[in-house]
């Protein structure tokens, strides 16, 4: 099978980013970004702070329209659509059903005044679930999958540790069984040992559920564990891309080489 045939046999991409640029006034946020993301694939976007990776994430996740270029998404009902050509309610619906967003600070991604069960159940109720027992059952099941004991179901997230809060945020996103999940420095504020445990859990979940994910981070250890492919960003541009192991073990671009060599090998 030629490479061309092989590509043609793949399912269509879930997300297709075409010449995407974003400017802050005359400052470049990100420039000419192109990539495709396939179902079940995990893409890591790495770079230092200021490299444009958060700007890119904002555009990809529908929070900020790009200055130019398109973000195409394989919509369950409508097929491949331009994300920003969807109406606002359609986009908002997408964000709370087929997409997930895990924020660095769980306080931004959770409702701190609602119980763990309420947090997980919100997406179900948003699309019309009206059976308390079923909602609760599902919430309990998802808490189990992220290794939170079921007796914490009615507790407020404020009583949870940082690692638990982050796991709760993940459960809250996964309950609607999204096909795509965005993660912004998902292990950011956590201790090293907690980070390892969370990454392990995340890796298992995205594999088991066949979820595609875009992970934005400055931490190469995170993408080493999670990502299939990498984009390396610098000054708003993608300077290198490829399979994770290839990029990390044999970096071609001087900036990637610098980035890789600055991490202690373990």
């Amino acid at each position: 099978m030629t490479e061309k045939d092989w590509l043609a046999s793949l399912p269509p991409p879930l997300l297709q980013v075409e010449d995407l640029s974003f400017y802050y006034g005359d400052q470049v946020g990100c420039l000419d970004i192109n990539f495709q993301l396939y179902p079940g694939e995990v893409l890591g976007i790495v770079g230092e702070s200021g490299s444009g990776k958060s700007t890119l994430l904002n555009c990809l996740s529908g929070h900020q329209p790009p200055s130019s270029g398109r973000v195409m998404f394989d919509h369950r009902q409508q097929g491949l659509v331009d994300l920003f050509a969807l109406s606002e309610p359609e986009r908002r619906l997408l964000m709370r059903t087929d997409w997930g967003l895990v924020r660095q600070n769980p306080r931004d991604g959770l409702r701190m005044n609602l119980s763990a069960g309420g947090n997980v159940g919100e997406r179900l109720m948003a699309v019309g679930a009206r059976h308390y027992g079923h909602i609760r059952g599902q919430a309990e099941q998802w808490l189990g999958r992220v290794e939170i004991a079921s007796d914490r179901l009615d507790h407020l997230p404020t009583t949870f540790s940082g690692g638990m809060q982050q796991r709760l945020q993940i459960a809250r996103n996964l309950v609607s069984q999204p096909r795509l999940i965005f993660m912004d420095e998902p292990t950011g504020g956590l201790d090293v040992s907690v980070q390892a445990k969370l990454l392990d859990l995340l890796r298992g979940l995205v594999r088991d559920l066949n979820i595609a994910a875009i992970v934005v981070t400055h931490d190469l250890a995170v993408v080493r564990l999670l990502a299939d492919r990498l984009l390396v960003m610098r000054q708003g541009r993608v300077v290198e891309s490829g399979l994770t192991d290839q990029v990390l073990d044999d970096p071609q671009h001087p900036y990637t080489q610098l980035l890789v060599s600055s991490v202690l090998q373990v």
Binding site: R92, R111, S115, Y132, R136
Partner: peptide
């Protein structure tokens, strides 16, 4: 209201029952 996004109100009732 415009988009009929009323899930949050249901969540409030859920919290009542949970508590």
């Amino acid at each position: 209201h415009g988009y009929s996004e009323y899930g949050l109100m249901q969540v409030r009732l859920y919290e009542d029952i949970a508590r």
